[in-house]
Design a protein around this nucleic acid. Structure first.
Lengths: 330, 330
DNA sequence: CTGAAAGCGCTTACAG
DNA sequence: CTGAAAGCGCTTACAG
């Protein structure tokens, strides 16, 4: 590979001058700069990042540990958000996927330490509590889409409660009066927050809570998710008679569309449907297309990166809002 | 940060001895090895990868360039496949997402060269032709899920034709006789191959091609994908009267399920449904669940990495088979 | 089995 | 504005 010395010889200057040009040091005679630039071009020189890192004693690398417990399409936006910031600020993002079988979290952290990362983003694929090794306290660390019980790390998570309030508020504002919320498992933090938000929306508007039915229809049993969404929808329609249904996630909404079609009910006309996630193609593919609360994964990725970039050390718990995407189902 | 010299002082040996222990050089007295290991543990020493790379003149890094034209959930398996191999062989995988707006391909390649990558995997998110800068010929490069017209690079792609033959063959073997294939845009290589495979399945079994209807129902117009899947399904059911429908992708199959339900037809009983992709949750969420051909993204990621690992230079065009996932719809 | 010297490709710190 | 020297934390090559 061509080095700084090769370029120097080719350009007829000292290798230090080449280093100056490559690092945009302004104190180089324009004439020499030109010469060097031409040689760089001619030889195809590119600085050796490993050597730079060694000498500078700064890696410029931020580690990103992603747990792969679930495979949810939009979660990749967390990585994307961080990566775009990294690119913009000329930093490296070193992404490591961990999962129980293949790599331990410890091994991932060790790996990142070997690369002398200047900060670590630990991101969970769904909003939940995690527990992390103590070694992470040695280095600036942010948690994205998750939190620890110890409370020693800065975190950024979706504002579940606000999301619940917003979507239910939007439904009420559209004139829907009787809302059935088919929620996720209430042991999940998301389900708790959204439930509280839904109730708050009713209370703020002085609506009677008699007109709000909340029920968990996806529950975890023995490590498996069991959905009784279709059955629950049938029952709730018959007994509670909602004029709108709020679904805990878009895939569930898809199932509800099937139920409604089988009952001869038209979404957006006979009954309104709202949901959470903005899950891949599903919202656009349904007819009518699905109004849903998009998770702020991209924004969380950015937030986490910027926290590290700004060299912050405050232990904040930042909550980012969802984005209401209005389509035809409400 | 603690260095090899700190450890040496702490252990009372020469720093070279520490290096030997860290690199598992067997020619170290067990006694000294113990001493060093204890000091490594006590001081929390971890080798500095940048310094190792600099001196070894080997980066151990493989670059992975991912085009993000589309956001298809399972495409992440391409990265996963490569990453797991990298981990296993103690290599680094440096993943760079490119997209038209943010980073140019050139910039990504330049970035990878700065890191002295020992090989590059260029992966496309859907099977298509790409064009790549000449600079990539300077370094071992494999294309995954894509190919160039120049034919200078090794490639690994899904075997579209075999997939078409397998799924249609499976349908025929189950006793379905009249099959409507609602294909993707035929300008897409996947659609071409699958069509040829479907025809071959009929021919191999001596079935009349009168009983195979193939039609493209998702087409690109002005850069936008237009799906007329629902309409086309209605028409084809009325006119061609198939006993099974093969869908070009799982999201389309979902739409067809809605159509069939509205027509009072039961999937798996009145009519069989097959599909391609194994797209995220969709196949499992449909009732009955969807039989589909899973794309070999994970396998392509592994294949590409192994090609580079084995230091191959042959310009092969490897085709990997899909996996038939049998569920309730056939 | 161990160690002192030289060197990887850069940057830092300093002299001119 | 330019350059020679020293050094980053390791590995290589060699001597003992």
């Amino acid at each position: 590979m061509v080095t700084i010395k090769d370029v120097a010889k080719h350009a007829g200057v000292a290798f230090k001058t080449v280093a100056r040009v490559v690092n945009n040091d302004p104190t180089v005679k324009p004439e020499n700069r030109e010469k060097v630039l031409r040689s760089v071009e001619a030889l195809g020189y590119r600085p050796n990042r490993a050597a730079q890192m060694t000498r500078r004693k700064k890696s410029g690398v931020i580690g990103f540990i992603a747990d792969e417990l679930l495979r949810i399409p939009y979660t990749f936006d967390l990585i994307r958000g961080a990566q775009e910031m990294a690119w913009k600020h000329n930093r490296e993002l070193m992404v490591l996927n961990i999962n129980e079988h293949k790599y331990s979290l410890e091994a991932a952290v060790d790996h990142l330490f070997q690369h002398r990362v200047e900060g670590i983003i630990y991101a969970s694929m769904y909003h939940r509590q995690v527990s992390l090794p103590d070694s992470l306290t040695q280095i600036p660390t942010v948690l994205a889409n998750c939190y620890t019980s110890c409370g020693r790390f800065a975190t950024v998570v979706p504002d579940e409660e606000l999301a619940g309030e917003q979507i239910v508020g939007a439904m009420l504002d559209k004139g829907y009066r009787r809302i059935a919320f088919l929620n996720l498992d209430e042991r999940i933090i998301a389900a708790q927050g959204r439930k509280a938000g839904a109730i708050r929306a009713f209370e703020k508007r002085g609506e009677s809570l008699q007109n709000l039915h909340i029920e968990s229809v996806i529950v975890e049993q023995d490590g498996q998710l069991i959905s009784r969404a279709r059955l629950a929808a049938c029952e709730v329609i018959k007994q509670f008679k909602p004029d709108a249904i709020l679904c805990g996630q878009d895939p569930m909404a898809m199932e509800i569309y099937f139920v409604l079609q089988s009952l001869g009910l038209k979404v957006g006309e006979d009954i309104g449907i709202g949901s959470f996630d903005n899950w891949d193609l599903i919202p656009e593919l349904l007819q009518p297309s699905l109004t849903t609360m998009a998770l702020p994964h991209y924004e969380m990725g950015r937030w986490a990166f910027n926290y590290l970039l700004d060299e912050r050390t405050d232990v904040v718990a930042s909550k980012l809002p969802f984005r209401l995407i209005s389509r035809g189902s409400l």
